[in-house]
Nucleic acid binder design. Structure first.
Lengths: 357, 357
DNA sequence: AGACTTTCTGGGAACGCTCCCAAACCTCGG
DNA sequence: CCGAGGTTTGGGAGCGTTCCCAGAAAGTCT
């Protein structure tokens, strides 16, 4: 009824109800004690005036803005948009709002975003950090005791910041083993990880895998699975590609044309999967007849093509939701266990996997 | 150097610089006048203390939070995630942050989100509204003179709220005409629009197309194009589907099996395109030999399959960016022309369109 | 009925900032 | 060397809340 234009404050409500500001505040906040009469008067006044509390003022005194920040490389990327969705869902159900920022994997943008968001006094951050040696902005956050949860990746310098990510190693093992169990012995892998410099066989036993880039972890899982089954890791079957569609396409085309002997191909990332698939289609080799194929991420198109592609599905929504949940626990000072969380991938066998011929 | 933990305020800076709060505020804000000496002292003190302004307090007195809200059905949907990206890009470059909310096309969730965000005192809203007869929450916003820009869709009750959307009618015309120019005369269309109730031929000449649902507008464009070229609109070629993958798949399967005579198929939405494509693949009919095919939205997978699919590309990023730009203009009181903006679609001919045989 | 609890109420400070305004300080020309 | 006119400065109110605390009102028990 009352389309009061400019903001009506708690003072207006108090006046209208004929009580003091404090009393009005008390009943509106449902805290402290107040007589039934006062409560009624205040509630009615509030409704009559169309009172809407000012969250800014509230945040100002309470010190909590009921807002969390999501700092991601790119919300238009399906992985991050799904994670963001999970994040907002979890945040929302806890009464929090989320502020997003894209970094495009640019350290400066990341730093600037974090600063800006800090000024907005967000209660915490979920960050899928840009890879860099010295993530100062993030360290500063931790230093200032602002809750932070890392999503998907972490670098060595941030060893003690909790991480929520896919169990990259396990995921890769899962896919590789499923292929091995089908009888495959020569399994090729498409990876972004720089194979030469890190040397696949060069992962020391006790290494903190959490600090490796996801791509390296996935490569590691592949190696583990092979090793576990006594299969050799053939360097020629480790296909390196840049993190683009085209690069993967080219690399896989080369692999196919090289006449290498392999009976299965596993892609360690969604982007690489797309490129690899395109190369396969172009080459006109029938799959799974020629070789089996496992893609990464349950992208919509993988079920559209024929045969539908077998994939390793990443629980993207859950990753975001879990990150948010963890962050919220930290915010509530429930000195939550700062343990990392690694969610398992789910293998979805479809039409592109079969025993070798 | 100084990792001062809890917030250092402008008072701390003033004290450290040996000046008054007002002076410090003046130089920090770069407003008013101050002697070079004071400026130097204040800046140094600020740096030494690691001063970070409190945006909340600032917003509180200035009345502007430098934040805009994006209320979208689902950020995990590629269309909206791309639009959100455009939105944040535009906002960011104007010094604004964006708060996101998902509605899942639920009116109650939308209402609640808008209320919550209003309490947070966002400076404006970009909303892709849930379809409903009485979008009260949005009307209230407009009433309270909070800037709002609608994205992608609008309903009759919001006639005077500026809209940024695709030129749905023109897009559809473009696709249909391109098919006609190739020589096609019997063009089928897959649409979510309820054909019977609105009666394709039942769009009155002077109708406010902006208030129609996008699907209806796209259907209208199809009709227009046919009419313009003297082609009849055959009811049997208007294939209705629910807004799901499977529904479209079923509908197109039925169309193909029906033996209907048609030489081209146009899908009016990304989801429908996926379902239709799946039906085509399943049926094993070769395209464009059997019939030409135009999909909606330049989804990644449309270039992955073979032949690559010809599509009508929607400038999703630009839609979001334009919406944000418009909103910001409105926020700055540059009583911007409240005109709607309709961006054109771009036809990308690929391998699935050819002259009929 | 008086003393003592318990419940309820309103005043006022505080959160960190901006902005108004009057006081203090300069700089000059006469 | 004084005052006009300009620049620089600091005090203080105010933004809309919350919260502490002292005092008023109401209830309880000998």
């Amino acid at each position: 009824m009352a389309p009061r234009s400019q903001s009506v404050t708690i003072n207006d409500v108090a006046r209208e109800a004929g009580v003091s500001k404090s009393s009005a505040a008390r009943v509106l906040a449902g805290r402290g004690s107040s007589s039934p009469k006062t409560q009624k008067a205040v509630h009615e006044a509030a409704k009559r005036l169309g009172y809407r509390p000012n969250a800014l003022a509230k945040a100002m005194v309470s010190g909590s803005s009921k807002t969390i920040a999501a700092v991601l490389p790119d919300v238009a990327n399906p992985f991050f948009s799904a994670a963001l969705r999970g994040l907002t869902d979890a945040a929302r159900s806890a009464g929090f709002e989320v502020l997003v920022a894209n970094t495009d994997n640019d350290p400066d943008v990341e730093t600037r975003s974090i600063e800006l968001l800090t000024e907005k006094r967000v209660d915490g951050f979920v960050i899928a950090p840009v890879f860099q040696d010295e993530p100062d902005a993030i360290s500063r956050l931790v230093n200032d005791e602002i809750p932070v949860v890392l999503l998907d990746r972490r670098m060595p310098a941030l060893a003690d910041v909790p991480l929520v990510s896919l169990d990259h190693v396990g995921a890769s093992e899962l896919a590789t083993e499923s292929l091995i169990e089908l009888g495959h012995k020569r399994i090729a892998i498409v990876t972004e990880a720089v194979y030469d410099s890190q040397g696949v066989s060069g992962f020391p036993p006790g290494i903190d895998t959490g600090a490796l880039r996801p791509s390296a972890q996935r490569l590691l899982g592949y190696r583990n699975a092979l090793g576990k089954h006594g299969l050799p890791l053939e360097h020629d079957l480790v296909v390196h590609a840049e993190y683009t569609w085209r690069s993967a396409q080219k690399a896989v085309r080369r692999l196919i044309e090289s006449g290498q002997d392999f009976s299965a191909l596993f892609c360690t990332d969604a982007v690489l999967t797309a490129g690899a698939y395109k190369a396969i289609v172009e080459a006109g080799v029938p799959i799974p007849e020629t070789f089996s194929f496992i893609g990464f991420d349950d992208q919509e198109w993988t079920t559209l093509v024929s045969p539908a592609i077998s994939v390793l599905d990443q629980p993207r929504h859950a990753l975001g939701a879990t990150a948010a949940t963890r962050l919220l626990a930290q915010i509530r000072h429930i000195t939550a266990n700062q343990q990392d969380v690694r969610l398992p991938a789910n293998l979805i066998p479809r039409g592109t996997t079969a025993p070798p011929r």
